[in-house]
Design a protein around this nucleic acid. Structure first.
Lengths: 323, 323
DNA sequence: CTACGATTTTGCAGCGCTGCAAAGACAGCA
DNA sequence: TGCTGTCTTTGCAGCGCTGCAAAATCGTAG
């Protein structure tokens, strides 16, 4: 009973007689043998791990996503290693750049924040990569995300359809790394155009990030205007929650005085007061697809073409923008 | 220039002449050499990874914790591998039981939910382990957590101090795996005793988990009572947010009609409407201490004694229980 | 110029597994 | 019984690194 035979049995590989299989299994049982993952990794040159790299882990959107990624990876026998970049371009680059720590993981699902399209191109081409969010694929990796422009157009149109005429947008980021924000702003504008309405440029507010304090501050600025908005399209649910916090603390009502819609559909928005209307991306679909494509990329002998994968999304109308 | 010498330089080890060091570094640079982590792992029998195992990753408390753990681990040159157990006892056991996948990680920071003290004892004793939450140490692992009884006593006392006389508790779990809940219930009772008040037994409500829907349902049951409570101590902030959601949707006011206090101090509670009073455990301290103890346990030749480490906590009073 | 101790470099073995190809076992048929 | 073809088992090499001990080098003293 050679070690090689044991290996065959343990891995379910190859042709093994039922008799041998049983004998080995009994021995394994008795001796409490456990295969050494490290040795297997070395011999195969693979780690059986994938990395999920996101800017912030305490952002509900990402932690909800992480959960789904974890599930999908586990189903395929992979473990998940995580890292948070804080949006730091250097840190982000290190992860995808030439080799770096490589080998710890067989592939990466990456949600870039600080890296623009240029920096993304300069990467280790042998590292299987799936990008989430708003960088478009250059053909060497897959990109999974919803159609931001369309979703933003729908959200904005919903507010305009309510009869609101001074619709604000919170979250614009008019610089190279703010692609996601810019797509949403584009959708915001398209919705106005489609209805023949002019965008109130003073109501388009930028924020450094997409979290609660950002939303709260931006909203305060909007309320300080001579003519405050009567509706707000927020580029994330957290921004929306921050904005609502400010509105309410100023004694105004949502949605009566100001209607609000967010983006991401985090659970929190379904229980807040008021509940928050939102653009709901299908996170389960995104996670499952990202993992599936990544594993394909890892196991495929020839690199598959880089795909642009559009996840489904829908508008969820709750109290914050009810009629 | 042997491979062994390169190894010495790369690891900063041993006595190496400046001249050799330089020569090696130049070569490394030119050839773009990267050490193979997998091989090093095998040779050393370590993986340089620690695992963080929690019941739910989309719970803000855990994702905020994860973030701090990640930071601490990274500072020590370790990568973090995560797993979510969904509170499944089998899954939890597999992680700490004899060997299991072992070797993928050098140690585990574990927040058990489905495992009682008994099951916890039956584990691979060679696996460095730090427990978070409410299992007490049996001397072979460290335990990090706040003093739940004291914290709960303080929270309840705060409500009683507001002059409220019908104080409810949401989150009790009177079964083996509900230790955390039971400690909080004990604190709840102690606070009543200290003030010579009787606990209204019908106002102590159990919940299967500690999330928003649980809080919302439990609150609905409380409001359906003949004599509803005028204050509620919730065993998590999510429960509190769910409860507030129900209260408000029934047309009642927080804190005027019902005061609410939660537990965990998640960011959400600072921006909700109303903002939520809470028991704030020092998460940064917990994460840093857990990682520190775990690494000590991993690197120490003789296993250090299992410590009970009490993290600091404080009461944060916000709108939901303002006077 | 040789000898010796101290320091740096090198070589070898081995971590435990898998890929590959050779060896062995077995069954069928002449 | 002997031979062939097929299927199963085995042995060896090697993944790339580190621990250990031997070999080489260097500096200094006799």
């Amino acid at each position: 009973m050679s070690s090689r035979t044991v290996s065959n049995v343990v891995n379910g590989y190859a042709k093994v007689t039922d008799r041998t299989r049983e004998r080995v299994q009994r021995a394994v049982e008795e001796l409490g043998y456990r295969p050494n993952v490290l040795a297997r990794n070395l011999a195969q040159g693979k780690s059986g791990q994938i990395a999920l790299v996101v800017p912030y882990l305490d952002t509900p959107y990402f932690s909800e996503l992480l959960q789904s990624v974890l599930r999908a990876a586990r189903a395929a026998g992979y473990t998940v290693l995580i890292d948070q970049t804080d949006g730091d371009p250097e840190h982000e680059r290190a992860f995808i750049a030439h080799g770096s720590r490589r080998l710890l993981f067989d592939g990466v699902i990456f949600s870039p924040l600080g890296l623009d399209q240029m920096a993304l191109a300069d990467r280790d081409p042998s590292l299987p990569l799936v990008i989430l969010g708003e960088r478009s694929s250059d053909g060497t990796f897959d990109h999974v995300g919803i159609d931001d422009v369309a979703a933003s157009r729908q959200a904005t149109d919903h507010l305009l359809g309510l009869g609101r005429r001074r619709v604000a947008a919170i979250g614009d980021q008019p610089y190279a790394t703010g692609e996601a924000a810019q797509l949403r702003t584009r959708g915001f504008r398209e919705a106005h155009e489609a209805r023949g309405q002019a965008v109130h440029e003073d109501l388009v507010i930028g924020t450094p990030r997409f979290n609660r304090p950002d939303g709260a501050h931006a909203m305060a600025r909007l309320l300080d205007l001579e003519e405050p908005p009567d509706a707000v399209f927020c580029y994330s649910d957290l921004v929306a929650l921050g904005a609502i916090h400010t509105i309410v603390s100023r004694g105004l009502r949502v949605p009566e005085d100001i209607a609000v819609i967010g983006y991401d559909d985090i659970e929190e928005g379904a229980f807040s007061n008021p509940t928050v209307s939102t653009v709901s991306p299908d996170k389960e679909w995104i996670a499952a697809t990202a993992v599936e494509r990544l594993l394909l990329r890892i196991t495929s002998p020839t690199p598959p073409p880089g795909l642009e994968l559009r996840a489904p999304h829908r508008l969820i109308i709750r109290e914050s923008s009810a009629r």
